[in-house]
Amino acid sequence: MKWTRTLLVYLVLLTGAALTLAPFVLSVMTAFKTPEQFARRSSLSWPDPVTLENFGVLLTGRTEFGRAIVITVLAALLLVAGQLLFSIMAAYAFARMRFPGRDALFWVYLSTLMIPAIVLVIPLYLMMAQLGLRNTFWGLVLPFAFASPYATFLLREYFRGIPQDLVDAARLDGANALDVLVEVVVPLSRPIIATVTLITVVSQWNSFLWPRVITTGNDWRPITVATASLQSQYNGNWTLVMAATTLAVVPLLALFLVFQKQIVRSIAITGFK
């Protein structure tokens, strides 16, 4: 009876894994096909022969997709740096510093997570237009370059779990609040910082609505908007679109492989606490 239950669990897990991975496998398979292969054969058939033609079209400048990749990488780096900097400082203030209304202010700030992102699009657009930042790189990144409520929440909960004795010992040695943050709290919080970094990169890398609204033309569009435009620009050339999605996913997978140990460790520690 026990082995039957175990077999059933594994079958359910394998089914879930297959349903999750199938779209990605199909995307990669299609990316290595020519348009003729895709049109004449089943979409589930393996590419025969394998071709890199679609990737060549994307990266040789004919579609300006390479520019979109560079813009996306630069925007993600700037957003990660800004959000980490301000979120870490805000989380430390909420976790370790005492001031009137600290907890009430934190929960008010956290409640902004309940506001749908689409509600903020028009006000943000009007602000960027008034500042003359429409269809610019700064208009693309500036609204999201500061602290994130979700990142602040994760970091605050982790900071609260750091032993107070370590903080007190640093203060006895003459460290001020900034020294404690930089020399004690941040080094001990590398797992959760890695997790926040990955979450921020993924959310900004996959952002579509705001870049679509604030950018026009090909000058400052990121990889998501560039991929969407390929469908209409090349009359539904799905092999080209799937090659673009493959290029968009590969950096995220590489990032996860680099940070997977820290992510698992931060989840385990946070769950234990």
Rank of each mutant, 00 (worst) to 15 (best):
F94N: 06
P191S: 08
V25Q: 04
F106H: 15
I71R: 08
T72V: 08
R171L: 04
A68V: 09
T30H: 09
L133R: 08
T4W: 03
T136D: 11
W210V: 06
V180Q: 11
L253A: 10
S42K: 13
F144P: 01
V249W: 06
A226Y: 04
V202Y: 10
T215L: 04
L230N: 12
N135P: 00
R134D: 06
V119G: 06
T195W: 03
V167E: 15
Q83R: 14
F256T: 09
S189C: 05
A93E: 10
P143T: 11
V201D: 08
A194M: 13
L172M: 15
G139D: 03
E53L: 04
A228Q: 15
L77M: 02
T195Q: 12
E53G: 04
V241Q: 13
A31G: 12
M242C: 07
V167H: 03
I193E: 05
V25C: 01
L126D: 13
S148E: 07
R102P: 08
L131Y: 10
A91G: 11
A104I: 09
L178E: 03
F32P: 00
Q37E: 14
R156F: 00
V73H: 07
L252G: 01
G174N: 09
P116W: 04
W138I: 05
A175T: 10
P251Q: 13
V258D: 08
L74T: 02
T6P: 00
S232I: 07
R96S: 10
L252V: 15
G271F: 04
S27I: 15
G61Q: 14
I69F: 15
T227C: 01
V258F: 14
R221I: 15
Q231A: 06
R212I: 06
T195E: 10
L14E: 04
V121T: 15
I223V: 15
D168Y: 01
L133Q: 14
R5Q: 11
V213C: 05
W205H: 01
G61T: 14
V9M: 14
F146K: 13
F272G: 11
F144Y: 13
Y234C: 00
Y158E: 12
V28F: 04
M114Y: 06
R134G: 00
F38P: 01
T270Y: 01
P222H: 05
S189L: 07
S266Q: 04
P149L: 07
R67W: 07
L131V: 07
T216N: 07
G61D: 15
A90H: 02
G66P: 10
A76M: 09
D179M: 03
T112I: 03
V50D: 06
W3N: 09
R62A: 09
Y109R: 02
I192G: 01
F146H: 13
F144W: 05
I223T: 11
A169V: 09
I115R: 11
R96V: 12
A90V: 10
R171T: 13
F144D: 02
W3F: 02
L85C: 06
L247R: 08
K2W: 00
L252D: 06
L26T: 11
V184E: 02
Y109W: 03
W138V: 05
L154R: 12
T15E: 00
W210I: 08
P163N: 14
I263H: 09
V182L: 12
L155N: 05
